[in-house]
Nucleic acid binder design. Sequence first.
RNA 1: GCGCCGGUAGCUCAGCUGGAUAGAGCACCAGGCUUCGAACCUGGGGGUCGGGGGUUCGAAUCCCUCCCGGCGUGCCA
Length: 577
Amino acid sequence: MKEALEERFRSAIAGLLEERGDSGAPPAFAIEASRSPQYGDFACNAALVLGKRLGQPPRAIAERLAAEVRNASDWVERVEIAGPGFVNVWLRDSRWQDLLGTILEEGQRYGTSKVGARKRVQVEFVSANPTGPLTLGHGRQGVLGDCIARLLDATGHDVTREYYFNDGGRQMRVLGESVRARYLEQLGRAAAPPTQAFAAADSAWPVEIDGLPVVFPRDGYQGGYISEIADSLRREHGDGLADEPGDGVFRKTAEERIFSEIRKTLTELGIEFDVYSNETSLYEDGRIDATLRDLRVKGLVYEKDGAVWLRATDLGLDRDRVLVRKTGEPTYLLPDIAYHRQKFERGFDTVIDVQGADHIDQFPFVVAAVGALGVEADRVELVMHQFVTLTEAGRQVKQSTRRATYVTVDELISRVGVDVFRFFMVQRRAEGHLDFDLDLATETDWKKNPAYYIQYAHARTCGIERKALEQGVSLPDANSVGASALVLREEIEILKKVAEFPEVLARAGAAREPHHVSYYLRDLAGLWNPYLQDRTHHRIVSNEAELSRARLGLARAVRTVLANGLALLGVTAPEQM
RNA sequence: GCGCCGGUAGCUCAGCUGGAUAGAGCACCAGGCUUCGAACCUGGGGGUCGGGGGUUCGAAUCCCUCCCGGCGUGCCA
């Protein structure tokens, strides 16, 4: 729709430039869906952009352009000049009506495109280490990453969803120690540290209480799930594990149990990964050593204070970073570099890291390092998201990882359901904070819950189709729909809206911003629900057979777009509610 | 201190590759259903787009500066 118009303007502009002997590149201009019907279907700002270059008043230029566009009278209805020099274009209704057949024909495919050119894209997200249940931040990241992946899929990319976790480091060891401590406490061989000892990092930490040693690590995991794992180990093995190290069976069991819980949560959320990868495998196949060696060859590595450093300042960063601690154990940075390098060895054209704001500092170091090792750094993208706060009864609910008083994804899902959870999580753009309004999400008067507005528009449309079938009216197909009966202004407006869908997906995918999809769907439902509401003017199934067919076709088109859009958000499109 | 992200209606937020009277949901006010198309609809009030400067024919959008909030600035991840 827009492309043809754009072409028209382009050639008109070329003509004007040529006239003046201007052989420079044509300027960038915009054709946008007009914000108001009084400005037509599309508005073009080319005349304003050209004003200075041609040394003529924009409105005069607009006249010339308008004349040119008017020539396409088989599909252009009217062209006007308005304001400082906008060219507003009205298309003939048939231009919009013709779209209906296309949508009915394409069905589930409508909206998808090939702009991705089958480029291989990896989306890495969640990547939470299995030290505890997924928190709201992970939940947001999961939904965000998943929606980006769905969007890239729909726009013709070859997508791999990947979850990477650090299973080799200190964190997992502390996890094992935490479980071991709880195990020994349950056997009466150790004392639990008092809760207030956790309050601050510098508060007193007892070595023993009542003659029993305190073995719980200072930075251990305090959640109740740790005790549960310890409890089940105790039931299976009695006191037989008392002399086991924390890094062995305790760690392994905890990792397995927690990871399996995480996967369960993700599955429940409708998130499936193609690849799970971990740090250990990078050690095993020698990639960690190789990466360090190659960095060293590049002269980017030096020793200081017994540790091995990355000379990041040579790569334009503000400080150097430790790659290998003086204990001989790498920091997370080195495996991260090795991992990102491996991504490109695996043949991805583009790699997208979805990360929380707390990891943002890490990213430039990884990009700089893999860049130094020969990877074109602009092929690594970062999608950063801020954290999630929870508001209930008008107040913010305090979240503390340290005290394990955070709300988990599981808990929230059980309160609001997967659809509402996903919808709320993907409704905001990633860079901003996300306030999850529990009052709205669990609104007792759930008519107010914005997540349902779009679903309801879909459900009631299905209801109309059911009713038509009950009455013996068959649903039209692309050939029989007869869209020219759709002549009302509001019907054309709806057609224009569904026409935007492919563009919305392409733009949202390119920008890695799925929230545009939810706003678009809200807009569409915001045209459709009122249309359906007015049964006197817009009765879908009436005794006028031709009009009924056309309107049922319109209903099917809207239903298709709503369903396709909701699918991209991972939200169900119910046939009844 | 420095870096990144935010500051738009009472609240939560879209709009930010510059465009014409700044939008939505919730809340509030006034209306519409014997739920077979009301989980909806109609109308209304509500704004120094954090402040100030600049670039531009035109700025919520770009630049500078200041203020406020979050995150980071680890030999934690």
